[in-house]
Design a protein around this nucleic acid. Structure first.
Lengths: 106, 106
DNA sequence: TTACATACGTAGATCATCGACATATGGTGG
DNA sequence: CCACCATATGTCGATGATCTACGTATGTAA
């Protein structure tokens, strides 16, 4: 009962902080924000979009039809923003626990 | 290929920052450090101890026999400490990404 | 015409974690 | 005396997010 958000999920939500994005654009934004470290796999992305929508953390705010295929734009909901900030604070606290010791960089 | 350390693993290693501890004591120390939030399940703990030992992140530094049962004390290795600090810095960076926006507490 | 970026999606496998169980001792409360 | 909890180690099956690899389609650059 310790389980929380995993990194791909965290960065997916973080990617939506500025503005609504469609699925594939989220991959690029997450990579950008993480300095290239987080590369969301499409299998992770589309599964997570469905899951987070069902959880009420994100929602579809616009749908375009491009080449006969739906392009959905997702936005953070209020709950999603709250959960993300809570998660960030837990992470900051956990990081502090380790870093206050040796300030030594890895 | 984004996968990193999960929270129980992170707190298991953090619990060993001060001094070597035996398995069960790690549960208490992790709970203490996290303000009661992280409650390591024994299934998680003993599996993780084996895994992290195999990975070279922790090692057995002392063994006592209590009531005919081995009590093993684990310590962080150099690699384990390095990995933990690296993880902490990634977490701090990720947290900053979200918290620099609304300083608003969750 | 081959290949890559864009863009959506599915399917099977992996693996850390979880909940429940098993076992044993020592202490405390009813 | 007996139930329960803390201490302590450990196993087993299930869960669930993520990963790799595949499939489809268009536009564009080499």
């Amino acid at each position: 009962m310790t389980q929380r958000m995993r990194e791909p999920t965290y960065f997916l939500l973080t990617a939506l902080l500025d503005e609504p994005l469609h699925g594939y654009a989220i991959i690029g934004r997450a990579a950008e924000l993480s300095g290239g470290r987080v590369r969301l796999a499409t299998g992770t992305l589309y599964a997570a979009l469905d899951r987070l929508t069902a959880e009420g953390f994100i929602e579809v705010v616009r749908t375009e039809i491009v080449n006969g295929r739906a392009r959905r734009y997702y936005a953070l909901t209020r709950d999603g923003g709250t959960a993300l900030r809570a998660e960030a604070q837990i992470m900051a606290g956990a990081a502090r626990l380790v870093l206050r010791f040796a300030g030594g960089v890895a």
